[in-house]
Simulated assay, not measured.
Amino acid sequence: MDVATLGIDLGKNSCSLVGLDADGRVVLRRRMRPASIPRFTEKLAPCVIAMEACCGAHYLGRQLIAQGHTTKLMPPEYVRPYVKAQKNDDRDAEAIAEAATRPTMRFVELKSQEQLDIQSLHRVRSRLVGVRTALINQLRAILLERGTTVPQGRRTFERAIDGLLAEAGALPEGRIRQLVVEVRGEWQEIDQRIAALDREFSEMARAEPAARRLSSVPGIEPLTATAMIAAVGKGANFDHARDLAAWIGLVPRQSTTGGKPKLLGISKRGNTYLRTLLIHGARATMHTLSKSKTALGEWLRKLLARAHYNVAVVALANKLARLAWATMRRDIDFAHEQLAAA
């Protein structure tokens, strides 16, 4: 079999493989378990092996590269238009192989094991933050049923609940008071786990030169810096800074027809977690930057004079993503980049 491109539709228990020759004709169809794929591909001559960028694709991709193959990963939404007729695993694998042959196709950079490890830590932290938010909302509902309301804010509510538990008679004795104590203890335990992860991210940012350079950008803390490295590495998959900002989803959506451009809200595509961190970082540093006597501060003041505050926050997040790309690709700190721009 003269296989030039091999498409693999990954699954937990069963995978479909479709091979194309140099002319794009189907010359191979197989279905096998995931563990059997490396044993099968090592018998093939070096070829292009394409997969969707999903769970397990990066691990298998590194194994296939070690065998001498060229691995290409693609976003699933870019493969979908190539699925013909009814959808099934074989059609999906054929669509993956065909999509990989297109010269305009966009590919996903293969992540290292270190990047995947950092990404896993971030996802665990994100889950813990969600659990903490659910506990706080549940406690608010319990207190509200007993006539106690607390202003918004996690820290404000934390002080209020501790005060109620410390004050005798503030909460009726019995099972409900005991329940509030238990939920508060669970909340404190989650706080400790989140704080431990934050310390781990800070240590990573200090030890990794690329993360230290990213942390020099205003609004990018160790949490955002490590998330950026886990998501894009050194940003080599993006030719321009605006490409990274567009991938994160910090650019306007377009609805252009008949030569009449129309820009809508931001696209919100790409990495939701990374976009959230950048917007929060931009909001936190907005006041300081808008008062600074720098090129970035002057640009921000002009923007605030003509745009809504929230629009300016998102625009600043876009700017921070571009500065992050420059620090990663050029191996320089933000101060040097700002001096060169000025």
Rank of each mutant, 00 (worst) to 15 (best):
I194L: 09
D162M: 05
T156W: 07
S215L: 12
L179N: 06
T148P: 06
P172Y: 11
I190N: 00
L214G: 07
E200F: 09
R212A: 12
V180G: 08
T156E: 14
E200W: 08
A211E: 03
A196C: 07
A160R: 15
R146H: 06
A195P: 01
A195K: 06
G185A: 13
A170R: 00
R159D: 10
S215Q: 14
E145T: 13
A207W: 05
G174T: 03
Q188K: 11
I190L: 10
T149H: 03
V180L: 12
A170E: 00
L165N: 03
R193G: 04
E189V: 13
T149K: 10
E189F: 15
R193S: 14
E200L: 06
I176G: 01
Q192G: 13
V183L: 15
Q178I: 06
A207D: 02
G169K: 01
R206I: 02
A210R: 15
R184N: 09
R199K: 15
E167K: 14
Q192D: 08
R206Q: 15
R155F: 12
L171N: 04
W187P: 07
P172H: 07
T148L: 15
E208A: 08
R213Y: 02
A166I: 02
G174F: 01
S215R: 13
E182A: 12
T148K: 11
R177K: 14
D162R: 14
P172L: 14
R212E: 12
A160C: 06
S215F: 01
G147E: 02
R213W: 07
W187K: 07
R175C: 11
V180W: 08
L164P: 10
L165R: 11
D191Q: 08
D162V: 11
Q188W: 05
L179F: 01
A170F: 01
Q192I: 14
E208P: 01
A196D: 10
I161C: 09
D191V: 01
A207T: 04
I176M: 14
E158G: 04
V181D: 15
L171Y: 02
F157G: 04
I161N: 04
I190W: 05
D198Q: 08
V181F: 10
D191N: 09
A170Q: 06
A160I: 04
A160F: 13
V180Q: 08
A195H: 09
E158H: 13
I194R: 06
L171A: 03
R177F: 00
R199E: 12
A205P: 00
T148A: 10
R146I: 04
I176T: 13
E182F: 07
A168N: 08
D198S: 05
S202F: 01
E200V: 05
R193N: 10
I176R: 04
A210G: 06
I176W: 14
E158A: 09
S215T: 15
S202Y: 02
D162P: 08
G185K: 03
E203I: 11
Q192N: 09
L164E: 11
I161H: 03
A207N: 12
A205I: 00
P151C: 01
A205G: 01
R212M: 07
A211R: 07
M204L: 14
R212I: 11
L164S: 11
D162S: 11
L214S: 03
F201T: 12
G147Y: 01
P209W: 11
L214Q: 03
L171Q: 03
R177S: 05
T148D: 04
F157S: 03
A168I: 00
V183E: 09
I194T: 05
